[in-house]
Amino acid sequence: MSTRSFRTTLAALALVATAACAPDQSPPDTAVRPTVVSPVDAVPITVAVPSAASPATPKRTPKPSSGTCLGAVVHTVDASADAPPWRPVCIAVGGVVRVEWLGPGELTVTPASRASCAYAGGVHMCRLIGTGPARFGTATRRLDVTVAAAASPPKPSPACDQPGTIRTLDAGDGGPPWPAVCMRIGSKLRVEHLGPWGFEAAPAGIMSCWYEAAVRECTFTRPGTVTITISRPDVEPRRLIIVAIS
């Protein structure tokens, strides 16, 4: 080989080596490729969907049953300043709320149709004549009473007359209304000194009456509250409220 050919060969080899060592001048691959997640590596995501809220159910105040109430008893409370607080109570119709140590005109009953009250000597005697809630109040106290219908079979009712009692009214006497009373079915009301007119019982149907010689006698035949009105031409009418129970 001649000297010129040898030099040419060396130059060619040098160019090849230089090309092999030169950095890659091609533009970088900037394409974005999606990342593939293997089904094994996938984590399930649970999205909580709020359920429709159910409407709120209003609270109901349970009505007292005859099993949770007292019979027609006399319930006494003390209205003096240092007396214990008054607690709610449930009493059957015909019972009595007795308020002691309280002056005249200082007791209120709401509604007034629940009780008929009489006052004497610092004591208010209030006969329960209608069923439902009642509130007895003074300037500083209140007593909530639930007046329940009479239980069947009846509970002890010491505030009422004994079975077979006969009550007598003298229609010839004037004066304020008689205090309300509680009587049993089968008991009798006898009204004396009154002619065939001037006697009224409302509502009708609670008692059966007969009349003879200025005397009227009435027997209670079913439970209920009745108002007796005695009218005479020379005096103011007088009234008596009677609660009849079994």
Rank of each mutant, 00 (worst) to 15 (best):
S157Y: 06
W86P: 01
A171V: 05
P156N: 13
F136P: 00
R135Y: 10
D144I: 04
M125N: 14
P50G: 01
V147C: 09
P104N: 15
V77K: 00
A115K: 00
Q162C: 03
T76K: 04
S116K: 02
G174S: 09
A52M: 13
P111L: 04
K59D: 11
A148M: 09
V96E: 07
A92V: 03
A81Y: 10
D173H: 06
R167W: 03
V145I: 04
G130K: 13
D144F: 11
P158T: 09
V123A: 02
P58D: 11
R135C: 14
G130P: 09
P104H: 11
A56Y: 12
P158R: 15
L169S: 01
S80V: 06
P88V: 00
A151N: 06
A92Q: 14
S65A: 03
T110N: 15
P133M: 01
S80G: 05
W101R: 05
A112Y: 02
A81H: 08
P104Y: 11
V96Y: 03
T131W: 06
R135G: 12
Y119C: 10
P111D: 01
A151F: 07
T140L: 06
A148K: 14
S65Y: 01
S65C: 08
A150I: 08
G175I: 02
R114N: 14
T110R: 15
E106I: 07
D161Q: 05
V77G: 03
V145L: 13
H75W: 03
S116V: 08
G175R: 02
I166T: 15
G67Y: 09
G172Y: 10
L143E: 05
S80T: 06
P104Q: 09
G130E: 09
R98W: 07
A56D: 08
D170Y: 11
R141L: 03
A53E: 09
V147F: 04
W101M: 13
T168S: 05
S66T: 14
T108P: 15
V97F: 00
V49D: 11
A79Q: 02
P104E: 04
R142E: 11
G103F: 02
G121H: 12
A81N: 04
T108H: 12
S54H: 05
C126Y: 05
